[in-house]
């Protein structure tokens, strides 16, 4: 079953790359909305690795599935709180960016 392993490896690599893309954007992009998106993409990469590890060739492990469903709801709650805080930052400082010497794009 070389194909089965290959499919798993494709999704593992994709999960790792999504996580790295998220980390990079989280550090580089100054806008807070993009940072929220980046954290969500990082989470999606982690979910992908978890689900790929769960889908064996014969038996499917339901525990990571339950973990990921819980994780999706928690990610939405965290995003909602982060967006509310972003609006507060925008109202307080006049811009939706971190008040540091962030590199301009």
């Amino acid at each position: 079953m070389i194909t089965e392993n290959l499919v798993g490896e494709i999704y593992l690599v994709c999960g790792a790359l999504l996580f790295v893309l998220g980390v990079h954007a989280l550090v580089v992009r100054p806008h807070l909305l993009v940072k929220v998106l980046a954290v969500n993409i990082m989470g999606s990469g982690v979910f992908m690795v978890l689900l790929t590890a769960a889908s064996g060739p014969d038996l499917i492990d339901p525990v990571p599935h339950a973990l990921v469903i819980t994780g999706i709801v928690v990610a939405v709650c965290a995003s909602a709180v982060a967006l509310a805080l972003m609006l507060k930052v925008r109202a307080a400082t006049g811009q939706a960016r971190l008040p540091s010497e962030a590199p301009e794009d």
Partner: peptide, 14 residues
């Protein structure tokens, strides 16, 4: 990527 490709085979909690 290198670490994930070396994941040990496991049966999990199925």
């Amino acid at each position: 990527v290198l670490i994930l490709l070396e994941l040990p085979a496991h049966s999990g909690l199925a």
